[in-house]
Amino acid sequence: MTSSAAATAPATAGASAWVTVDAGAIRQNVAELLRRSAPAEVLAVVKGDAYGHGLVTAARAALAGGATWLGVAQLDEALRLRAAGVEAPLLTWLFPPQADVGAAVDAGIDVTVTSPWSLEAVVAAARDRGRPARVQAKVDTGLGRGGVLTDWSGFVGLLAAAVAEEAVELTGTWSHFAWADAPRHPTVRAQQERFVEALAELEGAGVDPGLRHLANSAATLTNPSAHFDLVRPGLAVYGLSPVPDLGAPADFGLREAMRVTARLTSVKRARAGQGVSYGHEYTTGRDTVLGLVPLGYADGVPRHAGGRGPVLVGGRTYPVAGRVCMDQVVLDLGPDSHAEPGDEVVVLGVGAAGEPTAQDWAEAAGTINYEIVTRMGPRLPRVVVGEEQ
Rank of each mutant, 00 (worst) to 15 (best):
V346L: 08
S118Q: 14
E32S: 15
G351Y: 06
H185G: 05
T20N: 03
V42Q: 00
L81R: 03
E87I: 01
A103G: 07
G322H: 02
D110H: 12
P116Y: 04
V101Q: 09
L230M: 11
A78Q: 04
A50P: 01
Q359P: 04
S225Q: 14
E344L: 11
T173S: 12
A178K: 10
D360E: 11
Q389T: 10
Y297W: 15
D332P: 07
A270E: 11
N216A: 14
D181R: 11
T20S: 11
A161H: 05
E169R: 14
A305S: 14
V385I: 15
W174I: 01
S16T: 09
A137Y: 11
V243D: 00
S4G: 09
R286L: 08
S217V: 07
A164V: 03
E256A: 14
T187P: 01
A190T: 00
E77M: 07
V45M: 05
L91T: 06
A236V: 08
H338R: 15
L33I: 13
W179R: 15
G147H: 05
R129V: 12
V21N: 01
F155Q: 03
L90V: 09
S277L: 04
A272L: 08
V311M: 04
D76T: 15
L199W: 08
T8G: 02
R36H: 10
P10N: 14
I372D: 00
K47N: 06
G334F: 05
K138M: 15
D128M: 13
G108S: 12
G275K: 07
A178E: 07
